[in-house]
Structures are given as C-alpha cells and as structure tokens.
Amino acid sequence: MSTDNTVCIVVDIQERLTPVLNGHQLFIEKSCQMLQGLQALEIPVLAAEQYPKGLGHTVAAIKEQLGDVPLFEKTKFSAWQPEAEAFVRQHGAQNIILIGVEAHVCMLQTAADLRAQGFGVYVPVECTTSRTVENKENGLAQMQNLGAVVSNIESLLFMLLKDAKHPAFKTISKLIQ
C-alpha cells in the first residue's frame, strides 16, 4: 500500500442512520481524523450515500471534512457501483481504505465485492460501526476472513507515510497524538 496506489471510499455516514449506531460520536470523530490524515497524504476520496431520500445525507462533520470530493447515491448495499469502479480505475488504485457503516452490511458487502475484484481492502477499526457491538465485531471478522486487513488509523497512516522524511510526517504525527 502506498500513496500512489490507494484511495478511500466513505460508505453511508448519514444523518438518519448515524444517531442509532453504537458509539456514533467517537466513530464520527475518528472518521474525521482518518480523513484529515488521508487529505494530508493526498489520498483520493469518494463518498457514497445509501438512499439519501430515506436516510438523509452525509453528516455535517464528515461532509465538512470531505469538502468537494465526489459523492454518489446508491440503493444497493455494496458501494462497489459503477461510480466507485470508475473512480478507483481513474486513480489506478490497487488498495482501498473503507470507512463507514454498517460494518456487517454495507461495509461487509463492499469489502466482499472489492476482494472479489482483487483489490487490497483496509478497514480502520475506529472508522466503522454498527447498531450493536456484536454486529460490528461480526462484520469485521467476516471482512478479515475475506482477506481484508482490519487495522487502525495510526497503522494505516504510517503505512502510507513509510518514512519520517515524508512531507506529511509532522501533520500526521500531530493528528494522532
């Protein structure tokens, strides 16, 4: 995984869904932290929204962090849709960092589809959740069994940095303190 072959897909962090999720406030905070780190590393980001007419749009804190990144609507649970495929191919990505919800539904189905296409999939454990802890743990276990790497924010950001001489090192170091 490197800054040249990695993108991030943000899955369904939406207004009407997020408040019912386990630990949703910390999840939003950590997802913003991850997005800040990815922006410092200039990792391309794409966002998906599951049926926004019913679930609302991306929550304000995440939307603010995303800025003007491309966003697409979906009704299928997996975010591996034509818009995501075009984005991933456009950036020549081999690895995808997934953040979002719910771990055992949309995140799991997205990870399964990406793995079936041969992509490396990385999920920072702080940046996904479900309505229950059990569903989150089950979703993460299933993703790992599919070959996704279940990791954490610090490990993934430093994996992308590779060297303390990287121009974003100080920014990332301050971010994870």
Rank of each mutant, 00 (worst) to 15 (best):
L35I: 15
Q36K: 15
L46V: 14
S78G: 02
G118F: 08
T110P: 09
L21E: 03
L41G: 06
C8R: 06
R16S: 04
T110V: 04
G147M: 07
K53E: 15
S151N: 07
A164I: 04
A47D: 04
F77S: 13
G147Y: 07
P19L: 06
R16W: 11
H104P: 09
A60I: 09
I43S: 10
L35N: 10
M159F: 07
A40F: 05
N22D: 03
A116T: 02
N152D: 15
L114N: 01
L161Y: 11
I28M: 12
K74G: 12
I62T: 09
F169C: 03
H166T: 07
L55D: 01
G56F: 01
C32L: 10
Q39C: 02
A60D: 15
V20H: 14
A40G: 13
L71F: 02
A103L: 08
Q109V: 06
E15C: 10
Q39N: 14
E102I: 09
Q39S: 11
L71S: 05
K53G: 04
I62H: 05
A40C: 10
M159R: 13
H57W: 00
R115F: 08
E137I: 12
V69W: 04
K165N: 14
E15N: 10
Q144M: 03
L114D: 02
R89A: 15
L146E: 08
K165V: 02
K74D: 14
I43M: 11
L46T: 11
V123S: 07
D163Y: 06
L17W: 06
C106I: 04
